[in-house]
Design a protein around this nucleic acid. Structure first.
Lengths: 341, 341
DNA sequence: GCATAAAATTTACGCGCGTAAAATTTATAT
DNA sequence: ATATAAATTTTACGCGCGTAAATTTTATGC
């Protein structure tokens, strides 16, 4: 690519001696042109630096290779991780992912969806904000664009839903905690944005009752997405007011647990399962950071790979014409035993 | 927006009774049309759901409102946080940010830059990978697109550089540690991807010598971006082999420190400044998570707001025609005293 | 060498919108 | 009411590429 810059396909057609429609075919699928033509084009590409404008490409294409990925909040490492995973899968499957974050704001989420329409995506992988989402905006979007909902299900919209089995999550870890020590109380935010939180509370209550224990739910104040700080402040309050009825605390999610661990540290409360420990703390999610808390956090982890693979594969299948009835897939989590509980 | 979907501006022109060029002006700047016209358009927008296709808009515009934001790795909360900050500033200034992550991969970084060209951005805010970056790709990109480099400077490319003053960071926190206890040794990765790491090591050495202490650098193995794990594994090795010559450890960055804290926990080494503590650990960066480690991490924090504001403002000024010579701005960090050191 | 099929080229139009120039309408001042 | 300026409409072309149809060129079999 020593030559000058080529500004469009027509110029590259002149300079390479190949007609523009053939070039168009080539860039769309190199194997669709004759070998001799392909090598001529590739030779020209070596000499001259040219890349077709992807946005112009998509303008008049009936089916693009674009895939939109929307998460509620990119600064949450959980979503960052799953977004990264999904992006890789899209690339591997020959799609072109574009990542968007709703920044925890319903208005921005709607904005993102409008922007996405302009991209003419072949499909979208959407993790909605949850309760805050504008249901009408989501619904109309899903009618226009093949959309697969993941992480947090709103209603039966889109092609399908893929997420984790929150009931299994909570039941499983509650069971573990009951078997290995005092039955846990459940620590959560009072007004969680995510519907998964409700499922987890209910699953906790059901599990406790099934095991013959009295469920105790500790709900702390806090709005927004600063879960660690909510967990920390709520932890202080809960300790001060004696809300924790047992020495075992199951948190609604790992970020809350991380904040609670900090509160424990600040209160001088030793966390862990050793004899010198006063309290056990467990989380839920398998947050990327949970390995590095002190003590490392016992948690039940999403199967990141399976969730993203199932979601991506389902979307790709739908894009490629497969029609299947709406379906909800909820994948089981894996208990990760560490020192905190 | 009760009516049917309008598919393009021409259809909206017919239905609203306004000519398409006037609509184009309106969408570009609502105040550029007469009040009576504007209210007619706005009334039509209430009735019919129409939004211009942004990618088609940008196709033939001489100067778009697009701003590209590129970070090395979105799953690092530090970059996620600064990216979020930059996005907000772009939106506030009337620009349209699009976020990209290089996923820690130089080839992908080059890919991203090529994608960005298609967007015809008015400007780009780019945090390069660092040493791994393809310098030639960066340089030619900067020649074509007004680009402001932030976080990690490569050479004198682009419009300007805005980042943190790593020398001040390390000098300041080294000074603090020396004044309040044993002089620190410096804990880092052997082959850091980021040039900032080198500046910090050198600043540490210089500071120690100036204070009349012997600098000790502990470099641990590890490649890639899994800093916490590198910090943890390296920490185990360093403890086992007695590499830490003092009871105070200054880490090259917070993520490494977070991993080291975990190693300390696993080794049963108490961290903090209390009399019952065996070791002090400090980080650098003011990572979003540093508040929630146990003990909370003493660190020297980037001035996120100032960095992102300086970077964004400089880019916007350049976009709006201001020409200034290349300049490097390095902002001071703020020492955050917490329990770890 | 010729017939046939496959691939490439030519030609032409479309995507959704920006933008420039000329013609027309509207608002403001006198 | 008239002159002037401002805004709008009409008309037309451009951005960079997709894509379809007709034509010409190339490759393959015999």
């Amino acid at each position: 690519m020593a030559g000058d810059k080529i500004k469009n396909m027509e110029e590259f057609a002149r300079i390479s001696g190949i007609s523009r429609p053939t070039l168009s075919k080539f860039f769309n699928d190199p194997s669709s042109v004759r070998d001799s033509t392909r090598s001529k084009i590739e030779a020209a590409l070596e000499q001259y630096d040219y890349r077709p404008n992807i946005y112009a490409m998509n303008q008049n294409r009936k089916l693009t290779k674009n895939v939109g990925i929307v998460v509620p909040l990119l600064s949450d490492p959980y979503f960052a991780e799953i977004a990264r995973n999904l992006e890789q899968r899209c690339l591997a499957a020959g799609y072109r992912p574009t990542l968007f974050s709703s920044h925890g704001d319903a208005a921005l989420e709607t904005e993102v969806l409008d922007t996405l329409r302009s991209l003419k995506p072949a499909g979208v992988l959407l993790a909605p904000l949850g309760r805050a989402s504008d249901p009408h905006a989501l619904e109309t979007f899903c009618k226009d664009v093949p959309t697969l909902i993941f992480d947090s299900s709103v209603e039966e919209i889109g092609l399908a839903f893929v997420g984790s089995d929150n009931v299994q999550f909570t039941t499983h870890i509650t069971d573990y905690l009951c078997r290995t020590g005092e039955p846990p109380c459940f620590y959560e935010m009072k007004t969680p944005a995510n519907p998964n939180a409700h499922r987890r509370r209910q699953a906790y209550i059901a599990a406790m009752e099934r095991f013959g224990h009295e469920p105790v739910v500790v709900s702390v104040e806090g709005e927004g997405w600063s879960f660690e700080e909510i967990g920390r402040l709520g932890g202080h309050e809960a300790f001060d007011k004696g809300w924790f009825s047992t020495n075992t605390i199951l948190c609604s999610n790992d970020r809350l647990a991380i904040g609670l661990l900090t509160a424990c540290y600040e209160k001088g409360v030793h966390v862990g399962r050793g004899s010198d420990c006063a309290i056990r703390v467990a989380g839920q999610d398998g947050h990327p950071h949970s390995r590095y808390t002190c003590p490392p956090l016992t948690t039940i982890s999403h199967d990141y790979d399976a969730v993203s693979q199932t979601a991506a594969d389902a979307l790709f299948a739908a894009i490629e014409g497969q029609v299947t009835p709406w379906k909800s897939t909820r994948l089981e989590g894996r208990l990760i035993l560490r020192d905190s509980a």
